[in-house]
């Protein structure tokens, strides 16, 4: 097992690499012989109709499910069930790779927004001054400072989405995987989301999002991974 994970990524090595991955969900094959490689800082859009395996692929990338054939390499390490059972590695991995759920309700469970944002950094064992700093910075950056003492479940859909994004930001992950980030957002919210994603791009983060939104695809769809229900995928450049 990897006891002291290596946090530096070599420049030319792909950060995430899928090699001939096959995956089934409840016994039904969903992904079949999928290969792709994603470099650090790259942005990839996953497209395809419902049932094409976008959510399954995102779960796979987050180490929630594992390929039945083929390998998924994260920074050169094959992600397997036995590796993810190693708690130190899986925690490190989950800090590096974050997941934005389609429905923000799913990931918000603390009693206030501040607690929600502090959840990640407290777990990482950062000193409390830095935790406070990060929470404040994230509240500022996503302009939700006025919500800091509200309960997450009482917020509107768009506000919940921002809180969810902020709660991931405070962990400062290197890879952001997002399931339909545009859902629950109105037009203004989407414009804001695009700006936020661009800021993440500038900061050198790797973005992987499953989306149907035309604007998002226009802005970020230079690299797409088109999945089809027939479970064969091609990577378009």
């Amino acid at each position: 097992m990897n006891d002291s994970p290596d946090t530096t990524t070599k420049a030319n090595e792909p950060q995430l690499c899928l090699q001939d991955v096959c995956c089934a969900y409840d016994g039904v094959p969903v992904l079949s012989h999928l290969s792709a490689s994603i470099s650090p800082g790259e942005t990839i859009c996953l497209t395809g109709p419902n049932g094409a395996g976008k959510s399954t692929l995102l779960k796979l990338l987050n180490g929630l499910i594992f390929p039945e054939q083929g390998t998924y390499l994260f920074e050169g390490t094959a992600i397997t069930a036995s590796l993810m059972r190693d708690h130190r590695y899986s925690k490190w991995f989950h800090q590096r790779v974050s997941f934005l759920w389609q429905n923000p309700d799913t990931q918000l469970f603390c009693s206030t927004v501040t607690e929600e944002l502090a959840f990640g950094p407290i777990q990482m064992g950062l000193p409390s001054a830095e935790v406070r700093q990060r929470v404040d910075d994230a509240l500022q950056a996503l302009s939700i400072a006025h919500l800091r003492d509200r309960a997450p479940y009482s917020l509107s859909g768009g506000e919940k989405k921002r809180v969810a994004l902020a709660s991931l930001l405070t962990m400062n992950p290197a890879v952001w995987t997002m399931d339909e980030p545009e859902s629950f957002l109105d037009a203004a919210g989407r414009a804001w989301l695009m700006e936020f994603l661009q800021a993440l791009q500038r900061a050198g983060k790797t973005l992987i999002m499953a989306t149907h939104d035309r604007e998002l695809l226009q802005a970020f769809g230079q690299h797409t991974l088109a999945l089809t229900p027939a479970s064969s995928a091609q990577q378009a450049g």
């Binding site: 989950h94 990931q107 469970f109 990640g120 777990q123």
Partner: peptide, 8 residues
Amino acid sequence: ALKLRSVG
């Protein structure tokens, strides 16, 4: 979701 965010 809790598991994914339980990073420490």
